[in-house]
Amino acid sequence: MDGATDDVNQAIACELQLMDPQVRASRELAGQLLDPEFVEVGGSGRRWTYETMLAELPDHPGSSQDAPRYEPSSISGVLLAPGLVHLTFQAVLGERRSRHSSIWRRGEGDAGWRMYYHQATRVPPGVE
């Protein structure tokens, strides 16, 4: 496996971890996967930062073991530069379908891969 493929696969693995209800419910676990400079533009149009996301993520959909979970599909990625990966995918959460784009960057030292930016767009019913 070449370095680019390995980096993309590591970023995908981290993205999937962030969809795990156990990770989403834990400020500590989620904080290890979000970059301190993290920003998200959610499907609602709301802008999230590292602190606001960590504070509210446990109450977001997909964060409970007993509720619907994110079901990702068509996940793919590209290495933009050393230590920088762009991922795109679709996800279903209950009846809601969405498209996602995220940028992951490798942290310093042992920090590993962390989500730097995320964009989610809801897909209306009937749209392919």
Rank of each mutant, 00 (worst) to 15 (best):
residue 1 M to P: 05
residue 4 A to C: 07
residue 5 T to W: 02
residue 6 D to I: 00
residue 7 D to C: 10
residue 15 E to H: 05
residue 16 L to Y: 01
residue 20 D to A: 03
residue 20 D to S: 05
residue 21 P to F: 11
residue 22 Q to E: 14
residue 24 R to D: 09
residue 25 A to N: 14
residue 26 S to G: 02
residue 27 R to Q: 15
residue 27 R to W: 12
residue 29 L to V: 04
residue 37 E to K: 11
residue 43 G to M: 11
residue 43 G to L: 06
residue 44 S to D: 15
residue 44 S to P: 05
residue 44 S to A: 13
residue 46 R to I: 08
residue 47 R to L: 15
residue 51 E to M: 02
residue 51 E to S: 15
residue 53 M to T: 10
residue 53 M to R: 14
residue 54 L to V: 10
residue 57 L to S: 09
residue 59 D to F: 09
residue 60 H to W: 15
residue 62 G to N: 13
residue 62 G to Q: 11
residue 62 G to M: 11
residue 63 S to P: 03
residue 63 S to M: 13
residue 63 S to I: 00
residue 68 P to V: 10
residue 71 E to S: 12
residue 72 P to D: 03
residue 74 S to L: 04
residue 75 I to S: 11
residue 77 G to Y: 00
residue 77 G to T: 04
residue 78 V to G: 03
residue 79 L to V: 00
residue 79 L to W: 07
residue 80 L to R: 06
residue 82 P to T: 06
residue 83 G to C: 04
residue 85 V to E: 08
residue 85 V to W: 02
residue 87 L to W: 04
residue 87 L to I: 08
residue 88 T to K: 04
residue 92 V to Y: 01
residue 93 L to D: 02
residue 94 G to D: 12
residue 94 G to F: 15
residue 96 R to M: 13
residue 100 H to W: 09
residue 102 S to M: 09
residue 105 R to Q: 14
residue 107 G to S: 01
residue 111 A to M: 03
residue 111 A to W: 00
residue 114 R to F: 03
residue 114 R to W: 04
residue 115 M to F: 10
residue 116 Y to N: 02
residue 116 Y to S: 08
residue 119 Q to I: 08
residue 120 A to T: 14
residue 125 P to M: 05
residue 125 P to W: 00
residue 126 G to E: 01
residue 128 E to W: 05
